[in-house]
Amino acid sequence: MSTADATTPVVEPLRPIRSGRSRNHAEQWSWLFMRGSGVLLLVLIFTHLFINLFSGDGVNQIDFAFVAGKWASPVWKIWDFVMLVLAMIHGGNGMRLLINDYARETWMRKTLKTLLTACVATIVVLGSLVIFTFDPCPLDASGDLLPGVPTFCEDVR
């Protein structure tokens, strides 16, 4: 024993410094979430792209009135909201894994993850507010409809 102690360097077990791999099965949940949300996002985004970018006039049809037409239905509001939240968490979690892999310094990982969290939170909050406070028929200061509103605004007035 004593001779081995003198020559063999003591190998300390590495502490789990990265991403809380040992914490509350956090990485297991991350793994499961990426797969579950991935399948849902495939359906949500392929449908989104088919309707907005493929059917009708494709990209040329997209303008304020097109958005107003879609968001007149609560189905598309919920659709876009679920897509927004799932995509930002899925993408944000993916970026977190890349930060863990490529940012070598602890301070760099912390800085990048703080920026990432702020970015994801801002986009989710902003996007949700835009979807649920959307006004299809905005008025100018004198109470007239702004140019570019959908034609149904005239009927509503």
Binding site: D135, L146, G148
Partner: peptide, 10 residues
């Protein structure tokens, strides 16, 4: 998000 600014901006 520009749909909340104005139709023209978007």
């Amino acid at each position: 998000a520009l749909v909340r600014v104005s139709p023209e901006a978007y």
